[in-house]
Nucleic acid binder design. Structure first.
Lengths: 224, 224
DNA sequence: TGAAAAATACGAAGAAATGCGTATTGCAAT
DNA sequence: ATTGCAATACGCATTTCTTCGTATTTTTCA
Protein backbone atom coordinates (compact mmCIF):
# COMPACT_ATOMS: atom_id res chain seq x y z
CA UNK A 1 0.00 0.00 0.00
CA UNK A 2 1.32 3.39 -0.95
CA UNK A 3 2.15 5.83 1.81
CA UNK A 4 0.20 9.00 1.21
CA UNK A 5 2.13 12.19 1.66
CA UNK A 6 -0.52 14.47 2.99
CA UNK A 7 0.83 17.88 3.87
CA UNK A 8 -1.12 19.32 6.79
CA UNK A 9 -0.51 22.86 5.59
CA UNK A 10 -2.12 22.31 2.20
CA UNK A 11 -5.81 23.21 2.08
CA UNK A 12 -8.20 20.34 1.57
CA UNK A 13 -10.28 20.71 -1.56
CA UNK A 14 -13.78 19.64 -0.71
CA UNK A 15 -16.87 18.81 -2.72
CA UNK A 16 -20.33 18.42 -1.28
CA UNK A 17 -23.11 16.36 -2.84
CA UNK A 18 -26.46 16.70 -1.10
CA UNK A 19 -29.92 17.10 -2.57
CA UNK A 20 -31.70 18.70 0.34
CA UNK A 21 -30.94 22.38 0.14
CA UNK A 22 -31.37 22.80 3.86
CA UNK A 23 -28.82 20.14 4.74
CA UNK A 24 -26.59 21.38 1.96
CA UNK A 25 -26.52 24.87 3.34
CA UNK A 26 -25.94 23.52 6.83
CA UNK A 27 -23.00 21.43 5.61
CA UNK A 28 -21.47 24.39 3.81
CA UNK A 29 -21.69 26.57 6.86
CA UNK A 30 -20.30 23.94 9.18
CA UNK A 31 -17.32 23.25 6.95
CA UNK A 32 -16.58 26.90 6.25
CA UNK A 33 -15.50 27.33 9.83
CA UNK A 34 -12.35 25.36 9.16
CA UNK A 35 -9.59 27.34 7.52
CA UNK A 36 -7.92 24.17 6.23
CA UNK A 37 -10.96 23.38 4.13
CA UNK A 38 -11.78 24.91 0.80
CA UNK A 39 -15.19 24.08 -0.62
CA UNK A 40 -14.81 23.85 -4.39
CA UNK A 41 -17.87 22.02 -5.68
CA UNK A 42 -21.44 21.92 -4.44
CA UNK A 43 -23.74 19.47 -6.20
CA UNK A 44 -27.40 18.57 -5.73
CA UNK A 45 -26.96 14.99 -6.89
CA UNK A 46 -24.41 12.46 -8.10
CA UNK A 47 -24.79 13.38 -11.73
CA UNK A 48 -24.06 16.99 -11.02
CA UNK A 49 -21.03 16.04 -8.96
CA UNK A 50 -19.58 13.96 -11.77
CA UNK A 51 -20.12 16.79 -14.24
CA UNK A 52 -18.30 19.17 -11.96
CA UNK A 53 -15.42 16.76 -11.50
CA UNK A 54 -15.11 16.39 -15.24
CA UNK A 55 -14.39 20.10 -15.42
CA UNK A 56 -12.18 20.18 -12.35
CA UNK A 57 -11.06 16.98 -10.67
CA UNK A 58 -8.65 18.66 -8.30
CA UNK A 59 -10.67 17.54 -5.32
CA UNK A 60 -9.41 15.67 -2.27
CA UNK A 61 -12.61 14.57 -0.66
CA UNK A 62 -16.35 14.48 -1.23
CA UNK A 63 -18.99 14.70 1.49
CA UNK A 64 -21.60 12.50 -0.12
CA UNK A 65 -25.21 12.11 0.80
CA UNK A 66 -26.59 8.62 0.21
CA UNK A 67 -30.16 9.45 -0.65
CA UNK A 68 -30.19 11.61 -3.76
CA UNK A 69 -32.33 11.74 -6.90
CA UNK A 70 -31.00 11.03 -10.42
CA UNK A 71 -27.79 9.40 -9.19
CA UNK A 72 -27.55 8.33 -5.56
CA UNK A 73 -24.48 8.40 -3.35
CA UNK A 74 -23.52 4.78 -3.92
CA UNK A 75 -23.66 5.02 -7.69
CA UNK A 76 -21.85 8.34 -7.60
CA UNK A 77 -19.10 6.84 -5.44
CA UNK A 78 -18.59 4.02 -7.91
CA UNK A 79 -18.38 6.50 -10.75
CA UNK A 80 -16.01 8.85 -8.92
CA UNK A 81 -13.70 6.03 -7.83
CA UNK A 82 -13.62 4.70 -11.36
CA UNK A 83 -12.37 7.93 -12.86
CA UNK A 84 -10.63 9.65 -9.97
CA UNK A 85 -9.44 7.04 -7.56
CA UNK A 86 -7.47 9.57 -5.50
CA UNK A 87 -10.67 11.26 -4.35
CA UNK A 88 -11.80 10.15 -0.90
CA UNK A 89 -15.49 9.75 -0.18
CA UNK A 90 -17.15 10.36 3.16
CA UNK A 91 -20.68 9.03 3.24
CA UNK A 92 -23.28 11.00 5.14
CA UNK A 93 -26.57 9.39 5.93
CA UNK A 94 -29.65 9.74 8.02
CA UNK A 95 -29.95 6.04 8.77
CA UNK A 96 -27.55 3.32 9.86
CA UNK A 97 -28.83 0.91 7.28
CA UNK A 98 -26.70 -2.19 6.94
CA UNK A 99 -27.40 -2.72 3.27
CA UNK A 100 -26.34 0.79 2.30
CA UNK A 101 -23.29 0.55 4.51
CA UNK A 102 -22.17 -2.61 2.79
CA UNK A 103 -22.69 -1.18 -0.68
CA UNK A 104 -20.91 2.02 0.28
CA UNK A 105 -17.89 0.10 1.53
CA UNK A 106 -17.77 -1.98 -1.62
CA UNK A 107 -18.03 1.16 -3.69
CA UNK A 108 -14.93 2.46 -1.94
CA UNK A 109 -16.07 4.95 0.66
CA UNK A 110 -13.42 5.99 3.21
CA UNK A 111 -15.87 6.65 5.98
CA UNK A 112 -19.47 6.64 6.92
CA UNK A 113 -21.04 9.19 9.23
CA UNK A 114 -24.49 9.85 10.52
CA UNK A 115 -25.84 13.26 9.59
CA UNK A 116 -26.34 14.01 13.24
CA UNK A 117 -22.55 14.23 13.58
CA UNK A 118 -21.36 17.66 14.55
CA UNK A 119 -18.92 19.84 12.67
CA UNK A 120 -15.91 18.76 14.70
CA UNK A 121 -16.67 15.10 14.18
CA UNK A 122 -17.03 15.57 10.45
CA UNK A 123 -13.83 17.57 10.33
CA UNK A 124 -11.98 14.89 12.24
CA UNK A 125 -13.36 12.27 9.89
CA UNK A 126 -12.10 14.28 6.94
CA UNK A 127 -8.64 14.47 8.45
CA UNK A 128 -8.70 10.77 9.21
CA UNK A 129 -9.63 9.99 5.62
CA UNK A 130 -6.94 12.30 4.26
CA UNK A 131 -4.25 10.64 6.36
CA UNK A 132 -5.13 7.23 5.05
CA UNK A 133 -7.52 6.08 7.74
CA UNK A 134 -11.24 5.63 7.88
CA UNK A 135 -13.85 7.06 10.15
CA UNK A 136 -17.18 5.75 11.23
CA UNK A 137 -19.81 6.87 13.67
CA UNK A 138 -19.94 4.40 16.55
CA UNK A 139 -23.38 3.16 15.53
CA UNK A 140 -22.05 2.56 12.04
CA UNK A 141 -18.92 0.85 13.29
CA UNK A 142 -21.11 -1.61 15.14
CA UNK A 143 -22.89 -2.52 11.91
CA UNK A 144 -19.53 -2.89 10.23
CA UNK A 145 -18.43 -5.34 12.88
CA UNK A 146 -21.63 -7.28 12.30
CA UNK A 147 -20.88 -7.41 8.61
CA UNK A 148 -17.52 -8.96 9.35
CA UNK A 149 -19.01 -11.42 11.81
CA UNK A 150 -21.90 -12.36 9.54
CA UNK A 151 -20.72 -11.97 5.99
CA UNK A 152 -23.33 -10.90 3.47
CA UNK A 153 -24.57 -13.81 1.45
CA UNK A 154 -26.27 -12.04 -1.40
CA UNK A 155 -25.52 -8.36 -1.30
CA UNK A 156 -27.18 -6.51 -4.12
CA UNK A 157 -29.84 -8.10 -6.26
CA UNK A 158 -28.39 -8.98 -9.62
CA UNK A 159 -30.19 -8.21 -12.83
CA UNK A 160 -30.14 -10.42 -15.89
CA UNK A 161 -30.50 -7.58 -18.42
CA UNK A 162 -32.52 -9.88 -20.68
CA UNK A 163 -29.46 -11.65 -21.99
CA UNK A 164 -30.06 -14.89 -23.90
CA UNK A 165 -28.21 -18.10 -23.18
CA UNK A 166 -26.19 -17.71 -26.34
CA UNK A 167 -25.15 -14.25 -25.26
CA UNK A 168 -23.98 -15.56 -21.91
CA UNK A 169 -21.96 -18.10 -23.85
CA UNK A 170 -20.39 -15.27 -25.80
CA UNK A 171 -19.58 -13.44 -22.58
CA UNK A 172 -17.82 -16.50 -21.26
CA UNK A 173 -15.66 -16.52 -24.35
CA UNK A 174 -14.94 -12.80 -23.99
CA UNK A 175 -13.90 -13.37 -20.40
CA UNK A 176 -11.06 -15.58 -21.59
CA UNK A 177 -9.53 -12.75 -23.52
CA UNK A 178 -10.18 -14.27 -26.93
CA UNK A 179 -10.49 -12.28 -30.16
CA UNK A 180 -13.69 -12.29 -32.22
CA UNK A 181 -11.89 -14.54 -34.67
CA UNK A 182 -11.08 -17.12 -32.01
CA UNK A 183 -14.55 -17.00 -30.53
CA UNK A 184 -16.09 -17.51 -33.95
CA UNK A 185 -13.94 -20.55 -34.44
CA UNK A 186 -14.79 -21.93 -30.99
CA UNK A 187 -18.52 -21.55 -31.46
CA UNK A 188 -18.59 -22.56 -35.12
CA UNK A 189 -20.19 -19.34 -36.28
CA UNK A 190 -18.89 -16.54 -38.43
CA UNK A 191 -16.82 -13.63 -37.27
CA UNK A 192 -19.69 -11.33 -38.24
CA UNK A 193 -22.13 -13.15 -36.03
CA UNK A 194 -19.82 -12.88 -33.07
CA UNK A 195 -19.67 -9.16 -33.62
CA UNK A 196 -23.42 -8.86 -33.85
CA UNK A 197 -23.91 -10.84 -30.65
CA UNK A 198 -21.44 -8.66 -28.83
CA UNK A 199 -23.08 -5.57 -30.20
CA UNK A 200 -26.36 -6.78 -28.74
CA UNK A 201 -24.72 -7.62 -25.43
CA UNK A 202 -23.23 -4.14 -25.20
CA UNK A 203 -26.62 -2.57 -25.86
CA UNK A 204 -28.35 -4.70 -23.24
CA UNK A 205 -25.67 -4.12 -20.61
CA UNK A 206 -25.28 -0.51 -21.68
CA UNK A 207 -21.52 -0.68 -22.03
CA UNK A 208 -19.08 0.05 -24.83
CA UNK A 209 -16.24 -2.43 -24.62
CA UNK A 210 -15.20 -5.91 -23.59
CA UNK A 211 -13.82 -5.03 -20.20
CA UNK A 212 -16.92 -3.18 -19.06
CA UNK A 213 -19.13 -5.96 -20.34
CA UNK A 214 -17.17 -8.58 -18.42
CA UNK A 215 -17.11 -6.54 -15.23
CA UNK A 216 -20.82 -5.84 -15.37
CA UNK A 217 -21.76 -9.40 -16.24
CA UNK A 218 -19.47 -10.62 -13.50
CA UNK A 219 -20.78 -8.34 -10.77
CA UNK A 220 -24.29 -9.42 -11.70
CA UNK A 221 -23.23 -13.03 -11.53
CA UNK A 222 -24.08 -13.71 -15.15
CA UNK A 223 -20.61 -15.19 -15.51
CA UNK A 224 -18.03 -16.07 -12.89
CA UNK B 1 -30.75 -5.82 18.75
CA UNK B 2 -31.55 -5.00 22.34
CA UNK B 3 -31.54 -1.37 23.37
CA UNK B 4 -29.23 -0.93 26.32
CA UNK B 5 -30.39 1.34 29.07
CA UNK B 6 -27.19 2.98 30.06
CA UNK B 7 -27.62 5.62 32.73
CA UNK B 8 -25.02 8.36 32.26
CA UNK B 9 -24.93 9.13 35.98
CA UNK B 10 -23.96 5.61 36.99
CA UNK B 11 -20.21 5.06 37.31
CA UNK B 12 -18.65 2.73 34.76
CA UNK B 13 -16.99 -0.26 36.37
CA UNK B 14 -13.78 -0.86 34.50
CA UNK B 15 -11.27 -3.68 34.36
CA UNK B 16 -7.85 -3.45 32.79
CA UNK B 17 -5.88 -6.40 31.42
CA UNK B 18 -2.35 -5.59 30.37
CA UNK B 19 0.88 -7.47 30.95
CA UNK B 20 3.38 -4.66 30.56
CA UNK B 21 3.50 -2.90 33.92
CA UNK B 22 4.48 0.37 32.31
CA UNK B 23 1.51 0.45 29.98
CA UNK B 24 -0.68 -0.80 32.77
CA UNK B 25 0.28 2.04 35.06
CA UNK B 26 -0.18 4.52 32.23
CA UNK B 27 -3.64 3.21 31.51
CA UNK B 28 -4.64 3.40 35.14
CA UNK B 29 -3.49 6.97 35.41
CA UNK B 30 -5.17 8.04 32.22
CA UNK B 31 -8.48 6.53 33.20
CA UNK B 32 -8.41 7.82 36.75
CA UNK B 33 -8.88 11.33 35.43
CA UNK B 34 -12.46 10.57 34.57
CA UNK B 35 -14.85 10.74 37.46
CA UNK B 36 -17.38 8.56 35.69
CA UNK B 37 -14.95 5.69 35.65
CA UNK B 38 -14.22 3.37 38.52
CA UNK B 39 -11.34 0.97 38.05
CA UNK B 40 -12.24 -2.25 39.80
CA UNK B 41 -9.89 -4.92 38.43
CA UNK B 42 -6.34 -4.78 37.22
CA UNK B 43 -4.96 -7.94 35.66
CA UNK B 44 -1.60 -8.84 34.13
CA UNK B 45 -3.03 -11.40 31.73
CA UNK B 46 -6.25 -13.02 30.56
CA UNK B 47 -6.13 -15.76 33.13
CA UNK B 48 -5.88 -13.29 35.95
CA UNK B 49 -8.75 -11.26 34.55
CA UNK B 50 -11.01 -14.29 34.41
CA UNK B 51 -10.14 -15.18 38.00
CA UNK B 52 -11.01 -11.71 39.16
CA UNK B 53 -14.30 -11.76 37.29
CA UNK B 54 -15.17 -15.06 38.92
CA UNK B 55 -14.99 -13.32 42.27
CA UNK B 56 -16.69 -10.14 41.12
CA UNK B 57 -18.32 -9.92 37.71
CA UNK B 58 -19.94 -6.54 38.27
CA UNK B 59 -17.88 -5.03 35.50
CA UNK B 60 -19.14 -2.99 32.57
CA UNK B 61 -16.11 -2.90 30.35
CA UNK B 62 -12.60 -4.30 29.99
CA UNK B 63 -9.66 -2.53 28.43
CA UNK B 64 -7.92 -5.54 26.97
CA UNK B 65 -4.39 -5.81 25.65
CA UNK B 66 -4.00 -8.25 22.80
CA UNK B 67 -0.46 -9.44 23.41
CA UNK B 68 -0.35 -11.09 26.82
CA UNK B 69 1.32 -14.20 28.19
CA UNK B 70 -0.60 -17.20 29.55
CA UNK B 71 -3.91 -16.16 28.02
CA UNK B 72 -3.92 -13.51 25.33
CA UNK B 73 -6.55 -10.88 24.69
CA UNK B 74 -8.43 -12.82 22.05
CA UNK B 75 -8.75 -15.95 24.15
CA UNK B 76 -9.66 -13.88 27.18
CA UNK B 77 -12.37 -12.08 25.21
CA UNK B 78 -13.89 -15.39 24.14
CA UNK B 79 -13.85 -16.57 27.72
CA UNK B 80 -15.31 -13.38 29.13
CA UNK B 81 -18.08 -13.23 26.53
CA UNK B 82 -18.91 -16.87 27.18
CA UNK B 83 -19.52 -16.34 30.88
CA UNK B 84 -20.43 -12.66 31.18
CA UNK B 85 -21.90 -11.53 27.91
CA UNK B 86 -22.89 -8.13 29.29
CA UNK B 87 -19.27 -7.11 29.67
CA UNK B 88 -17.98 -4.96 26.82
CA UNK B 89 -14.45 -5.41 25.58
CA UNK B 90 -12.25 -2.70 24.16
CA UNK B 91 -9.17 -4.09 22.48
CA UNK B 92 -5.92 -2.18 22.81
CA UNK B 93 -3.06 -3.05 20.56
CA UNK B 94 0.27 -1.85 19.35
CA UNK B 95 -0.23 -3.01 15.77
CA UNK B 96 -3.01 -2.77 13.24
CA UNK B 97 -2.74 -6.40 12.32
CA UNK B 98 -5.57 -7.65 10.15
CA UNK B 99 -5.59 -11.19 11.45
CA UNK B 100 -5.84 -10.12 15.09
CA UNK B 101 -8.52 -7.59 14.22
CA UNK B 102 -10.59 -10.26 12.56
CA UNK B 103 -10.23 -12.66 15.47
CA UNK B 104 -11.05 -9.93 17.97
CA UNK B 105 -14.23 -9.02 16.16
CA UNK B 106 -15.28 -12.65 15.98
CA UNK B 107 -14.57 -13.01 19.69
CA UNK B 108 -16.99 -10.18 20.32
CA UNK B 109 -14.94 -7.05 20.99
CA UNK B 110 -16.88 -3.79 20.94
CA UNK B 111 -14.00 -1.71 19.75
CA UNK B 112 -10.41 -1.78 18.74
CA UNK B 113 -7.96 1.00 19.52
CA UNK B 114 -4.30 1.59 18.91
CA UNK B 115 -2.32 2.07 22.10
CA UNK B 116 -1.15 5.40 20.83
CA UNK B 117 -4.71 6.70 21.40
CA UNK B 118 -4.89 9.43 24.02
CA UNK B 119 -6.99 9.43 27.18
CA UNK B 120 -9.87 11.36 25.64
CA UNK B 121 -10.09 9.01 22.69
CA UNK B 122 -10.13 5.99 24.94
CA UNK B 123 -12.74 7.56 27.15
CA UNK B 124 -14.91 8.39 24.18
CA UNK B 125 -14.52 4.82 22.93
CA UNK B 126 -15.64 3.55 26.33
CA UNK B 127 -18.71 5.75 26.23
CA UNK B 128 -19.45 4.66 22.66
CA UNK B 129 -19.23 1.04 23.68
CA UNK B 130 -21.43 1.60 26.72
CA UNK B 131 -24.12 3.27 24.63
CA UNK B 132 -24.28 0.35 22.25
CA UNK B 133 -21.90 1.57 19.58
CA UNK B 134 -18.40 0.58 18.60
CA UNK B 135 -15.21 2.55 18.29
CA UNK B 136 -12.19 2.04 16.15
CA UNK B 137 -9.06 4.00 15.49
CA UNK B 138 -9.11 5.26 11.92
CA UNK B 139 -6.25 2.99 10.90
CA UNK B 140 -8.16 0.06 12.35
CA UNK B 141 -11.38 1.07 10.68
CA UNK B 142 -9.60 0.97 7.35
CA UNK B 143 -8.57 -2.63 7.95
CA UNK B 144 -12.11 -3.43 8.97
CA UNK B 145 -13.39 -2.05 5.69
CA UNK B 146 -10.87 -4.20 3.87
CA UNK B 147 -12.12 -7.23 5.71
CA UNK B 148 -15.63 -6.50 4.51
CA UNK B 149 -14.48 -5.85 0.96
CA UNK B 150 -12.19 -8.86 0.73
CA UNK B 151 -13.51 -11.59 2.99
CA UNK B 152 -10.87 -13.89 4.43
CA UNK B 153 -9.82 -16.45 1.89
CA UNK B 154 -6.09 -17.13 1.65
CA UNK B 155 -6.22 -19.76 -1.02
CA UNK B 156 -3.57 -20.37 -3.63
CA UNK B 157 -0.18 -18.76 -3.69
CA UNK B 158 -0.10 -15.70 -5.90
CA UNK B 159 2.83 -14.36 -7.87
CA UNK B 160 3.64 -10.72 -8.25
CA UNK B 161 5.32 -11.01 -11.67
CA UNK B 162 7.66 -8.17 -10.74
CA UNK B 163 5.07 -5.52 -11.44
CA UNK B 164 5.84 -2.03 -10.12
CA UNK B 165 3.39 0.02 -8.09
CA UNK B 166 2.77 2.26 -11.05
CA UNK B 167 1.95 -0.73 -13.18
CA UNK B 168 -0.58 -1.94 -10.61
CA UNK B 169 -2.10 1.51 -10.77
CA UNK B 170 -2.39 1.15 -14.53
CA UNK B 171 -4.04 -2.22 -14.10
CA UNK B 172 -6.59 -0.69 -11.80
CA UNK B 173 -7.45 1.80 -14.47
CA UNK B 174 -7.68 -0.91 -17.11
CA UNK B 175 -10.06 -2.83 -14.89
CA UNK B 176 -12.56 -0.03 -15.12
CA UNK B 177 -12.85 -0.38 -18.86
CA UNK B 178 -11.24 2.96 -19.62
CA UNK B 179 -9.47 3.78 -22.86
CA UNK B 180 -5.79 4.68 -23.01
CA UNK B 181 -6.85 8.26 -23.54
CA UNK B 182 -8.95 8.34 -20.39
CA UNK B 183 -6.28 6.62 -18.34
CA UNK B 184 -3.68 9.11 -19.54
CA UNK B 185 -5.91 11.94 -18.45
CA UNK B 186 -6.61 10.34 -15.09
CA UNK B 187 -2.96 9.75 -14.29
CA UNK B 188 -1.69 13.00 -15.79
CA UNK B 189 0.69 11.29 -18.18
CA UNK B 190 0.73 11.06 -21.94
CA UNK B 191 -1.17 8.57 -24.04
CA UNK B 192 2.17 7.18 -25.19
CA UNK B 193 3.32 6.50 -21.66
CA UNK B 194 0.12 4.65 -20.90
CA UNK B 195 0.75 2.43 -23.92
CA UNK B 196 4.31 1.76 -22.89
CA UNK B 197 3.29 0.84 -19.37
CA UNK B 198 0.67 -1.51 -20.67
CA UNK B 199 3.12 -3.04 -23.08
CA UNK B 200 5.43 -3.73 -20.14
CA UNK B 201 2.58 -5.15 -18.12
CA UNK B 202 1.66 -7.49 -20.96
CA UNK B 203 5.23 -8.67 -21.22
CA UNK B 204 5.54 -9.30 -17.50
CA UNK B 205 2.20 -11.07 -17.24
CA UNK B 206 2.76 -12.79 -20.55
CA UNK B 207 -0.56 -11.77 -22.03
CA UNK B 208 -1.64 -9.91 -25.14
CA UNK B 209 -4.69 -7.85 -24.30
CA UNK B 210 -6.56 -5.99 -21.60
CA UNK B 211 -8.94 -8.75 -20.65
CA UNK B 212 -6.21 -11.33 -20.14
CA UNK B 213 -4.16 -8.87 -18.15
CA UNK B 214 -7.06 -8.06 -15.85
CA UNK B 215 -7.98 -11.71 -15.34
CA UNK B 216 -4.41 -12.69 -14.56
CA UNK B 217 -3.78 -9.75 -12.24
CA UNK B 218 -7.06 -10.41 -10.53
CA UNK B 219 -6.54 -14.11 -9.96
CA UNK B 220 -3.14 -13.32 -8.49
CA UNK B 221 -4.68 -10.69 -6.23
CA UNK B 222 -2.66 -7.88 -7.71
CA UNK B 223 -5.93 -6.02 -8.15
CA UNK B 224 -9.37 -6.81 -6.78
C1' DT C 1 -50.66 -19.75 -38.14
C1' DG C 2 -48.64 -15.31 -37.66
C1' DA C 3 -45.78 -12.20 -35.18
C1' DA C 4 -41.84 -11.47 -32.41
C1' DA C 5 -37.45 -12.63 -30.87
C1' DA C 6 -33.08 -14.85 -31.45
C1' DA C 7 -29.40 -16.42 -34.15
C1' DT C 8 -27.18 -16.11 -38.12
C1' DA C 9 -24.43 -13.34 -41.82
C1' DC C 10 -22.11 -9.37 -44.36
C1' DG C 11 -19.74 -4.55 -45.31
C1' DA C 12 -17.93 0.13 -44.54
C1' DA C 13 -15.69 3.36 -41.72
C1' DG C 14 -13.62 5.01 -37.90
C1' DA C 15 -11.80 4.31 -33.13
C1' DA C 16 -8.93 1.87 -30.16
C1' DA C 17 -5.47 -1.31 -29.16
C1' DT C 18 -1.20 -3.76 -29.99
C1' DG C 19 3.72 -4.61 -31.31
C1' DC C 20 8.12 -2.82 -32.18
C1' DG C 21 11.62 0.70 -32.26
C1' DT C 22 13.76 4.65 -30.13
C1' DA C 23 14.97 7.97 -26.48
C1' DT C 24 15.49 10.89 -22.12
C1' DT C 25 15.35 11.47 -17.21
C1' DG C 26 15.96 10.23 -12.47
C1' DC C 27 16.87 7.15 -8.92
C1' DA C 28 18.91 3.26 -6.57
C1' DA C 29 22.14 -0.29 -6.08
C1' DT C 30 26.74 -2.04 -6.97
C1' DA D 1 31.17 6.14 -11.34
C1' DT D 2 28.55 2.94 -13.72
C1' DT D 3 24.95 -0.03 -14.42
C1' DG D 4 20.22 -1.11 -14.39
C1' DC D 5 15.54 -0.19 -13.95
C1' DA D 6 11.33 2.51 -13.67
C1' DA D 7 8.83 6.18 -15.54
C1' DT D 8 8.32 9.20 -18.92
C1' DA D 9 7.50 10.26 -24.15
C1' DC D 10 6.91 9.75 -29.43
C1' DG D 11 6.00 7.42 -34.29
C1' DC D 12 4.71 3.85 -37.54
C1' DA D 13 2.45 -0.25 -39.06
C1' DT D 14 -0.90 -3.49 -38.23
C1' DT D 15 -4.54 -5.76 -35.91
C1' DT D 16 -8.63 -5.75 -33.41
C1' DC D 17 -12.66 -3.68 -31.90
C1' DT D 18 -16.78 -0.83 -32.18
C1' DT D 19 -20.68 1.44 -34.37
C1' DC D 20 -23.58 1.89 -37.96
C1' DG D 21 -26.13 -0.10 -41.57
C1' DT D 22 -28.90 -4.26 -43.86
C1' DA D 23 -30.69 -8.96 -44.39
C1' DT D 24 -32.04 -14.08 -44.03
C1' DT D 25 -33.24 -18.10 -41.39
C1' DT D 26 -34.78 -20.40 -37.27
C1' DT D 27 -37.16 -20.68 -33.07
C1' DT D 28 -40.59 -19.42 -29.80
C1' DC D 29 -44.88 -18.26 -28.33
C1' DA D 30 -49.48 -16.36 -28.28
Amino acid sequence: MKKKNFAPDMPINLAIAEDNCFSRQAAIERMSKFSQIKIKHIAANGQELVSMLQKDSNIDLVLMDIEMPVMNGIEATIEVKKHWNHIKILMLTMFDDEKNLFDAILAGASGYLLKESNAEQIFRAIMDAMTGGAAMSPAIALKALNLIKNPQSESKESQDFGLSEREIELLNQLKNGLTYEQIASNLFISYHTVRKHIENIYRKLQVNNKVEAIQKASSNKLID
